[in-house]
Nucleic acid binder design. Structure first.
Length: 565
DNA sequence: TCGCTTT
């Protein structure tokens, strides 16, 4: 049992079983004062509580803003500049011939000899001889019409061009590389020397995402003899057998698994013709970069096609990508550094740490529609918040990298199936994960980069669905607010003017900031305030939503199971 | 700074 839970309840026995029934759970617990949490400022005035000036020299009115612009460019500035340069350089390769298309969905291509986009999947048969059974699998996986990144990205991939694709979260990037890969793989792996061994490699920053990509690949490969494999301990072992290795067509892997297998000599990348870096900006960050370089070095085939995909690609990282992409085509869908417009975004000022906890309690008490995903900044805080919500009798689980592989898999599976209503997660879940029905993302801890914000909230509002994202902040988060406020503005959300007027803090000041842990006494106080008498009713709503979700989850699992056969 | 990545 968790010692912390015991402590925070003044020694009261903390027993999960107590919460298996809803009865009497919340009796006698007072609903917190509805106004105990500061509401978001409704005016454009700078709230007095927000003493931003200690994070930046000068202030909003000091004329400093102009000066900041003249300082050496940060990544975001460079990005904006890169985009306007592209725009200024003319509409060459711009497929948005008619200006009727809303900016948010506009596709812009730069590069030499950009192939024309497709307008339907069926077109791929005549144009690129894509087999009809592959297209049937596309259709039965639920893809009807190609999305922006697919219309342009698929022909580019099929013409074996290198590419940097930047497209919103939930807009179908996975299919944009998987479909062409299967179209180009040719005959499934046989012992014929030239075809032997893996010919395509997809690298992903997390195991969960690798597994998800693999599941999608299985759906597309259904009924054909292609073999795709996620590299992990078990599969790596199987690959020690040379004959088994020759049968693999497509490998999906995290960087370290792959490097490890490379060093052990149980995979060789000599025959890889298609290399995809998914969530490329993450993979090209320090910490991953060395391994990516090793992987690139291992892919020695002269006809290697490389493509990087992400919803975000800061200019500095794109520059790194451009060192290994050859004659790349850059595809950008929508506006750079903007969130999906189907997500309703809110920034909520909570005053303090305890204010955030109360805000969350109020949110739950007011009723939430599961599934809900809550992001925090560290493993420790994930654990703490998990226990807090468990105490509230919520159907909650937690996922982070300190949990075992089995626990992580089980938690994700249960969340997909609707058995877990609220999932507390670290950055681990921020990228790529496709939980189609997530209704709400809560950024309990303010994301530390714009990229993180965009990816986190992108777990909702996917594939054209509506979604909602609430981001809590306190004055500690001041240095990060302006850039996130700009994201809201760029995606057409209302945002108080004062947030946009904030000075841009220096990197140094950001670095000085440290997030304090959720303090035990804060939790004890907030928990004492209770979750509210309403919860039993709300639970009933949640249960019915959960049941609907479970049906969807099981259906999805069946599809994967079928594909595996 | 922390988060993430093999055994």
């Amino acid at each position: 049992m968790d010692a912390f839970a015991l402590l925070s309840r003044g020694g009261a026995q903390f027993d999960k079983k107590r919460f298996s029934k809803e009865v009497s759970l919340f009796n006698g617990r007072k609903r917190p004062d509805e106004h105990s949490v500061s509401k978001p400022p409704e005016t454009d005035e700078l709230p007095a509580e927000l003493d931003f000036f200690k994070y930046a020299e000068g202030g909003v009115h000091s004329g400093r803003a102009k000066k900041i612009k003249n300082e050496p460019r940060g990544m975001e500035d460079a990005d904006e500049a890169a985009d306007s340069e592209a725009e200024a350089s003319g509409s060459e390769g711009d497929v948005d011939a008619e200006h009727t298309m809303p900016t948010a969905h506009r596709i812009r291509c730069t590069g030499e000899e950009v192939p024309s986009p497709i307008t339907s999947f069926s077109e791929l048969t005549s144009r690129y001889s894509i087999p009809p059974d592959l297209l049937r699998n596309v259709a039965s996986a639920g893809y009807a019409d190609p999305t922006g990144v697919q219309t342009q990205g698929i022909p580019i991939m099929l013409e074996k061009r290198d590419m940097a694709a930047i497209a919103p979260t939930g807009s179908g990037k996975t299919l944009a590389f998987l479909l062409p890969i299967f179209g180009l793989l040719g005959a499934p792996g046989r012992s014929a020397a030239k075809q032997a061994g893996a010919r395509a490699l997809i690298v992903s920053p997390t195991r969960e995402l690798a597994q998800q990509i693999h599941n999608e690949a299985l759906k597309l490969a259904k009924g054909r003899k292609w073999k795709t494999v996620v590299l992990n301990k078990a599969t790596a072992n199987a690959l020690r057998d040379k004959a088994a290795r020759r049968k693999v067509d497509l490998i999906v892997s995290t960087p370290l698994s792959l490097v490890s297998a490379l060093e052990e000599g149980i995979v060789d990348l000599d025959n890889i013709r298609h290399l995809i870096l998914d969530e490329a900006d993450r993979l090209l960050e320090e910490g991953f970069l060395k391994q990516i370089e090793e992987i690139l070095a291992g892919c020695s085939h002269p006809e290697l096609q490389k493509a990087v995909f992400s919803a975000t690609l800061p200019a500095a990282v794109e520059a790194i990508a451009n060192t290994f992409l050859r004659r790349p085509i850059r595809v950008i869908v929508g506006l750079k550094d903007s969130a999906t417009d189907t997500i309703q975004q809110e920034l909520l000022f909570c005053g303090s740490e305890i204010g955030k906890l109360q805000a969350l309690h109020n949110l739950v008490a007011d009723g939430i529609q599961p599934p809900v995903l809550i992001f925090v900044q560290s493993i420790e805080r994930a654990t703490e918040l998990f226990h807090e919500l468990l105490y509230d009798g919520l159907n909650v689980d937690v996922v982070h990298s300190d949990r075992s592989k089995a626990q992580r898999e089980e938690t994700v599976r249960r969340f997909r199936r609707g058995e877990v209503w609220v999932l507390v997660a670290t950055e681990l879940m921020a990228r790529g994960m496709d939980f189609k029905g997530v209704n709400l993302v809560v950024n309990y801890d303010f994301p530390q980069t714009v990229q993180s914000y965009i990816h986190r909230i992108g777990r909702t509002g996917r594939a054209g669905r509506q979604g909602k994202a609430v981001t809590y902040f306190t004055k500690e988060d001041a240095p990060y607010i302006k850039s996130v406020a700009n994201v809201l503005k760029a995606s057409g959300q209302e945002v108080p003017q004062y947030m946009l007027d904030l000075p841009k803090p220096s990197k140094l000041k950001k670095r000085e900031l440290k997030r304090r842990p959720i303090e035990r006494k804060d939790i004890a106080r907030a928990a004492g305030a209770g979750v509210g008498r309403n919860l039993a009713n709300r639970r009933r709503d949640m249960i019915s939503a959960s049941k609907r979700r479970k049906v969807e989850g099981e259906k999805a699992e069946k599809e994967v199971a079928l594909a595996e056969e």
